[in-house]
């Protein structure tokens, strides 16, 4: 386990470095850099050159990357080109909202997927199994913004049940107004739920008739105990991997869902920064999202390795 963990952490460290390089390269090396943004459309080449010299953008690429990396590692992403405030202020202020949204979605999706997956895995071919399969195709295929708009039209516009947007609600007010979160969380959950439940279902269906379960039945253990204590825990390994992909999906989905429902989280911040071409902010948001993805995948791989230990050195 220890050796695997070490090599996996090394891979993750490599991924982190690659993410840093990629974010820097995408935002600093392509034409359309900070100087172009600052002087705007009317600026001349001389003005751009002046701005570049002032910001140190005329230095060689490697030394620029070095100083950027040095600053970023100390948590300094520079100041926003729009507000002039340090980028990290805005990002940390928005972090809580997105964490709340994603946390709620995970808190709903994990138990629900387990329940549905186990229920349909134990009764293959039953109506619940078929309904789940149908819902998988339906809900997973539809983009979040389409599903969200249809739900808004039905529930808010048609039935008048839930608020259509979270506009006007600041991050700090969100925990006090849970009705605002119902639709965004619902849309996030419905896209991720089916895949996760499907993985649990496959694991349970494979193991409920496997040699171990048969042996336990021969030993006379009651069915309930076999399922809860032996079948389900063994079926979780593929589901954990899927959970990591689910968090990846939640990150992307959060961007769309937040801008659809006007939730002031990381996603809307990222979209605004992209629209304003606020490069320091874009760098910060991109790093937050990408590094979260790397960390989640690392944790999932370690968890899977713990659940299904591969004999080291012999495989």
């Amino acid at each position: 386990m220890f050796r695997y963990a070490l090599s996996r952490v090394a891979v993750a460290a490599g991924q982190c470095f690659a993410v840093l390089v990629a974010v820097f390269a995408l935002t600093s090396l392509l034409p359309g850099d900070t100087a172009d943004v600052l002087i705007g459309e009317q600026g001349t080449e001389e003005q751009a050159a002046l701005v570049r010299a002032r910001l140190g953008l005329d230095q060689p690429v490697v030394s620029r990357f070095g100083s950027w990396l040095h600053a970023v590692l100390q948590g300094d992403f520079g100041r926003s080109l729009v507000t002039g405030l340090p980028v990290t202020h805005e990002v940390t202020a928005r972090l809580g909202t997105t964490a709340l949204l994603a946390g709620c979605a995970l808190a709903v999706v994990v138990p629900l997927a387990l329940l549905l997956g186990v229920a349909s895995g134990l009764r293959e071919g039953s109506w619940i199994d078929r309904a789940l399969n149908g819902a998988t195709v339906l809900l997973h295929a539809v983009p979040e913004f389409v599903l969200g708009l249809l739900l808004v039209a039905w529930l808010s516009l048609g039935l008048g049940l839930l608020p259509a947007t979270a506009a006007g609600t600041t991050g700090a007010q969100l925990p006090g107004t849970p009705q605002v979160l119902v639709l965004p969380v619902g849309v996030l959950v419905s896209r991720q739920l089916c895949d996760l439940a499907r993985q649990v279902r496959i694991g349970v269906a494979e193991r409920k008739d496997g040699p171990m379960a048969s042996h336990l039945r021969l030993l006379g253990l009651d069915e309930h105990r076999i399922v809860v204590r032996h079948v389900v825990p063994n079926a979780l390994a593929p589901a954990v991997q899927q959970l990591a992909r689910c968090v990846d999906g939640l990150l992307g989905g959060a961007v769309v869902v937040e801008s659809l429902f006007a939730v002031s989280g990381l996603g809307t911040g990222f979209v605004e920064a992209v629209q304003n071409r606020d490069l320091p902010a874009v760098q910060c948001y991109a790093l937050v999202f990408a590094l979260t993805a790397v960390a989640v995948n690392l944790l999932a791989d370690l968890a899977v390795h713990r659940l299904v230990p591969v004999r080291e050195g012999r495989a």
């Binding site: 991924q15 690659a18 993410v19 990629a22 974010v23 995408l26 935002t27 392509l30 034409p31 359309g32 850099d33 990846d248 990150l251 992307g252 961007v255 769309v256 990222f270 979209v271 920064a273 992209v274 071409r277 606020d278 490069l279 874009v282 991109a286 999202f289 990408a290 993805a293 790397v294 995948n297």
Partner: peptide, 14 residues
């Protein structure tokens, strides 16, 4: 390791 939308957004930013 990159979420797909992220790459598209970072590109659009420049």
């Amino acid at each position: 390791a990159f979420p797909s939308l992220l790459l598209l957004m970072t590109l659009a930013a420049t």
